[in-house]
Simulated scan of single mutants.
Amino acid sequence: MNKKIIFKILSFLIIFITSFSQQLIAKEITNIQWKKSVAKGKNLSNFRETVTSPALGKKAWKITLLPKDCGRDNDGNYSDCKNNGKDAVVGHGGGDRARSEYSSPKKFTGEKWISVSIYLPKDFKSVEPVSTSLFQIYEWGNTNQQRHPRMMLRVKNGNLEPRYFAVNGMDSPGWVKKDLKIDDMREKWTTIIFHANMTKDPLKGFVKMYVNGELYNDYEGRTGFGGKFFNKFGIYHSWISRWTEVYGEYPTQVVYYDNLFRTHSKKKLLKLIQN
């Protein structure tokens, strides 16, 4: 057989086996497809690593955000590095932000069960008063009113808590039943489940947050404006100019993720989650 043909066959097999292996790893971590969010031009372009430790199963994902490492969209002119006057979320352009984040292109509506497991290393350092989000439910539609984060799992006052932006971008903490303290999350996995009904009907909308099976937060009311929804995970910093020399050197942040699942029912979700 021709050497060129043999080389092509071998190359194809290597690509196929690698792709198949990556799919098996991904299914062990998530049942959602993900793509990089606003990542063009970042200093650390490969900010997601597949690791074996710490992991709930065989693998997990390690996300790294270097200090103030911003990027821009592949398509369009939005940038986290520079204000272009076209940011639908806050009424002006980007800038003053940095992220190492993935978003899910497949959108959903209505009631869902969503999970995420988070591991914070011992040396995880908060950058408050900079806003830090580690997970989001985001709405996307045909109008600016429909293009907003509806829930951001944010580091705030030493806790990791959901913040809801269901009405005109206003930040609501929901009904806090119990605080999830950052210091209690270090060096161990914390599994968070959201039971959400994403709808513009204020009488039917809700988001309930469970931590290791216990209800920590409950929000009821409008959860959207008629668009469709998707999830984001990773480290997202907003208003990084709030960090001044008073706070010292801006730190690198590392967060580990597992159990990134979304299903129609609690029963299906619990079958996927690894403890």
Rank of each mutant, 00 (worst) to 15 (best):
Q23E: 14
G205F: 12
F47N: 03
G57V: 15
R186Y: 02
K268I: 03
V89E: 06
W175L: 10
G158Q: 07
E28L: 08
T109F: 09
F194V: 09
K271Q: 15
Q146W: 13
V155H: 03
L260S: 08
K156N: 07
T64Q: 01
V90Q: 15
G76Y: 00
F194A: 08
V89G: 01
I6A: 03
L134R: 01
D184S: 10
K58L: 05
P149K: 03
Y236S: 03
G234L: 01
S19E: 15
H92S: 06
W175K: 02
Q23G: 12
N157T: 04
S172V: 06
I6M: 15
I32V: 15
L270K: 14
Y210E: 09
G110C: 15
S133R: 15
S126P: 00
L13G: 09
K112F: 13
S241A: 06
I118Y: 07
D69G: 04
Q145K: 02
V127Q: 01
S238K: 10
V51P: 01
P251M: 13
K125D: 02
V207S: 06
L180M: 05
Q22Y: 04
N168Y: 09
Y236D: 01
I137W: 11
K106Q: 06
V90S: 02
S37D: 09
S100C: 10
S172M: 10
F206D: 12
N275W: 04
G221H: 06
H264W: 03
L65I: 13
P173G: 05
V116D: 14
N275E: 10
F225H: 12
K178Q: 01
D123T: 04
F7K: 10
R222H: 14
I17Y: 12
R186C: 07
V89H: 05
E49W: 07
N31P: 00
W175P: 00
E101P: 11
K27F: 05
Q22F: 12
R262W: 07
I32D: 05
T143G: 08
F135D: 11
